[in-house]
């Protein structure tokens, strides 16, 4: 190392940068002592060295810290929230499907049934069933006498979704002609929700053929024999209520002043329970 008045500036800069070892620093200091006019130069170069400002700090250092365990929790929480949201959505969908199915009302008047005339019918003509004792109407009684065979008074529902009422005394069973459980006997017709008024309480004037066509036929309605508890009528005389036999719980169309509801499983269960109770408690 050779410092002189031509190369002193470089050494002064190296001195200011701290790039000189101890011996080199001492040599520079001796040179300055020997050349005091260059001391000012050395002082200025040293003025250009910046000192760090300790008051300048990065605030909120915790934003920079990392915690792997907290990251895992966040992911877990996210998945947990997603799973909970999906479960709630499915639950609400199921509840809505059930209730909407139950409350889906199909209001369609099927027929207007006039109260039948109360007639005195012989007890020997009463036909019993699993549900209630029935008596044929006068017309069927006549036919029976003429033909000598029973004429079923059943009608097939045109659709499984046919509206029904829960009241057991206001429905009629229907079967397809030629396709009934009682083997193709005449008089069996399809009863559809008619668009016209039924003039007689005992007749339904519309029917559906198996091929889908319609024809107007007469279908008798079986009145149900009930006990007459009225004191003003002679004993032994029975009164008749407008009722329908029911041999199939699920294939009935209910008439007259009833709201028809869409068949559902839940309603079917309730209906069966109601009918059972009705059978048990109904008067014979």
């Amino acid at each position: 190392m050779q410092i002189n008045r031509q190369s002193y500036e470089e050494y002064f800069l190296l001195y200011a940068d701290g790039e000189l070892n101890e011996s080199e620093k001492k040599a520079v200091e001796e040179f300055i002592d020997q050349n005091p006019d260059l001391a000012g130069e050395m002082s200025l170069i040293q003025e250009t060295v910046f000192k760090p400002d300790g008051s300048i700090i990065f605030e909120n250092k915790e934003l920079l810290f990392k915690d792997s365990s907290s990251e895992r929790k966040i992911i877990y929480a996210r998945w947990f929230r997603m799973a909970a949201a999906a479960a709630l959505l499915i639950a609400f969908s199921v509840v809505g499907w059930v209730f909407l199915g139950d409350t889906n009302m199909h209001r369609e008047p099927v027929a207007i049934v006039k109260p039948p005339e109360v007639k005195n019918i012989e007890h020997s003509d009463v036909v019993s069933s699993d549900l209630e004792k029935k008596q044929p109407v006068q017309r069927l009684a006549d036919e029976k006498k003429q033909t000598g065979k029973e004429i079923p008074l059943v009608a097939q529902p045109e659709k499984k979704e046919a509206n029904k009422s829960q009241h057991p005394a206001n429905h009629e069973k229907n079967t397809q002609p030629g396709n009934s459980d009682i083997n193709n006997e005449p008089g069996v017709v399809n009863v559809v929700p008619p668009s016209k008024t039924i003039e007689s309480a005992t007749f339904i004037q519309d029917a559906v053929k198996p091929d889908g066509g319609r024809e107007t036929i007469d279908v008798a309605v079986e009145p149900r024999a009930i006990e007459n508890n009225n004191d003003d009528q002679p004993p032994g005389q029975v009164s008749y209520a407008q009722s329908f036999s029911q041999e199939s719980d699920d294939d009935m169309i209910y008439f007259a002043n009833t709201t028809l509801t869409k068949k559902t499983r839940l309603r079917g269960v309730f209906r069966k329970a109601t009918r059972y109770l009705d059978r048990v408690t109904s008067l014979q």
């Binding site: 760090p52 300048i56 700090i57 990065f58 810290f65």
Partner: peptide, 13 residues
């Protein structure tokens, strides 16, 4: 995290 504590201020400065 130690690096954050020791050098965040100087880097920021």
């Amino acid at each position: 995290n130690n690096c954050v504590k020791e050098h965040a201020d100087s880097v920021y400065r």
